[in-house]
Amino acid sequence: MHDASDGHDTLHDHAPGGGRHTRGGVRTYLAGLGFAVVLTLASFWVASTQTIWGPSVPVLLAALAIGQMGVHVVFFLHISSGPDDTNNFLALAFGIFIVGLVVFGSMLIMSNLNSNNMTPMANGQMQMQR
């Protein structure tokens, strides 16, 4: 029974996060932890410091967060873009696509509606048309 669970390692597929002998190991997790700690502390520092030009802070925070998510995906979940990971990677890409549509689409639509609300007349006409 035990042989069955870790005896196979097909060339074309492996599960996400699978610590299959070649990948994983304590060193991978330690590297991931190190990167994550540095990026987290950098985020908190960027948000609290006065030395960075104000308007650039949100961009920096977004970049650091995306970087840290990437670190978690690669070092903790072991998702890569390699040929044996195609299914997992495609699913991840689709998930990111949907999340991007939902988040940025909502923000775009709502800010558009907000700016329409600034002129009550135009907004009233739009509601009449619906």
């Binding site: 669970s5 196979h8 599960a15 996060g17 997992n88 998930g95 999340v99």
Partner: peptide, 20 residues
Amino acid sequence: AAVDVVVGFGFWLFLLSDIV
């Protein structure tokens, strides 16, 4: 595919839907 792969992939899809 091997059961491990199918289970892992299915759970990965669930996680992505959770992230949505």
